[in-house]
């Protein structure tokens, strides 16, 4: 039994699952939350899905030792592109979708190539593309449409696949999130590509020496995160029938908090898709679940801040545990 618990503690997801349980317990005890009501509510699940689709690729990048914050601009860029192409210019929705996702591929490629070619940390590179893309979206919206908000009417099939409200409340993007999580879990933990990503985060030079195509993998991961972001934006535009020029700065912090609470090591080389999944859920429960409590919602940021600090401390602890615990089992 203790052995089983020890094995669980050594998993990167352990911290996230424990925080999720802790936060829910806290809300139930001190906030008087009706668990059934919370479980049935759509708000936090919708919030988690929109966050989670971006958080998993960003987390994979972090495991590989990189960071992508340009996603903050790519979500509005994805929704604006869809709305401008298919709403303002009235081209078929498929064209708008291809343009939105294509933009993600282009920006991701730029990020990846710059990360490979320069020694500039990817935080700075993607800060550059973040600000640049915000400029592009604003300027393009103004020049092309003259408006800051663009309407879009999506045909039924697109609405059904990307912008449906299941049961009138749950966004269909939840299913996309779960599907993406399953696929990326498989890639990360069951295929050789996952092993390459962990190796890259562990030691990039050794990974290259071992024959891992580090450059190609880096570009692929940046494309994945930028495209996931523009996909989220595209779904939002189709759901809300319009796209607005917006900042999207908050999402950057939300994503990073989710990934770190999910047990990913900031320095790379350690983490898991399951951890990021539960990290996102925890974040969403704190952020949205607070409305179900008698606690003033302004406190939610305090909880998130404390949770983040605890998570980082725990990650360090788990890392040491993961590296040493198995040794102690053996009598010397």
């Amino acid at each position: 039994m203790t052995d089983l618990f020890g094995t669980f503690l050594r998993k990167p997801a352990a911290g996230a699952i424990l925080s999720l349980v802790g936060v829910i317990a806290f809300f139930v005890i001190f906030g008087g939350v009706d668990l059934g009501k919370l479980a049935g509510a759509a708000s936090w699940v919708n919030f988690a899905a929109n966050l989670g689709i971006v958080a998993i690729p960003v987390g994979m990048l972090m495991i590989a030792g990189e960071l992508d914050i340009s996603i903050g601009a790519m979500i509005p860029a994805g929704s604006m592109t869809t709305a401008i192409v298919s709403g303002h210019y009235e081209l078929p929705i498929a064209v708008g979708m291809i343009c939105a996702l294509g933009l993600g591929v282009i920006v991701g490629t730029i990020n990846g190539v710059l990360a490979n070619r320069t020694t500039v940390p990817s935080l700075i590179i993607t800060l550059g593309t973040l600000v640049a893309m915000q400029g592009v979206v604003l300027a393009a919206a103004k020049i092309l449409t003259g408006k800051a908000s663009v309407a879009l009417t999506a045909p039924d099939w697109a609405k059904f696949t990307f912008g449906q409200l299941i049961g009138g409340s749950h966004q269909v993007i939840i299913l996309w999130w779960i599907a993406l999580a399953l696929v990326l879990w498989f890639v990360m933990h069951a295929t050789r590509y996952g092993n390459w990503i962990f190796a890259m985060g562990g030691d990039k030079d050794s990974a290259r020496n071992a024959g891992i195509p580090v450059r190609q993998m880096t570009v692929a991961l940046f494309i994945l995160s930028a495209t996931a972001a523009s996909f989220t934006g595209m779904c939002q535009a189709i759901l809300f029938n319009s796209a607005q020029v917006s900042g999207g700065m908050n999402i950057i912090f939300n994503v990073i908090v989710s990934v770190v609470v999910g047990g990913t090591l900031l320095t790379g080389g350690f983490g898991s898709v399951a951890g990021i999944f539960f990290g996102t859920l925890t974040f969403a429960v704190v952020n949205q679940g607070i409305y179900f409590t008698q606690i003033d919602r302004n406190w939610s940021n305090l909880i998130i801040g404390v949770m983040l600090l605890v998570a980082v401390a725990m990650n360090e602890n788990f890392r040491t545990l993961a590296m040493t615990a198995v040794r102690k089992k053996k009598p010397a």
């Binding site: 390459w196 190796a199 024959g211 080389g269």
Partner: peptide
Amino acid sequence: GGTFPLMSIGRSFFAGVEPTRGWGPFKVY
């Protein structure tokens, strides 16, 4: 050692040349 401290011995040993089983897109480490 040029190894990866946070990877298991097996995974580190085979980094870049992982043995797989299965076929096509379902090649599993």
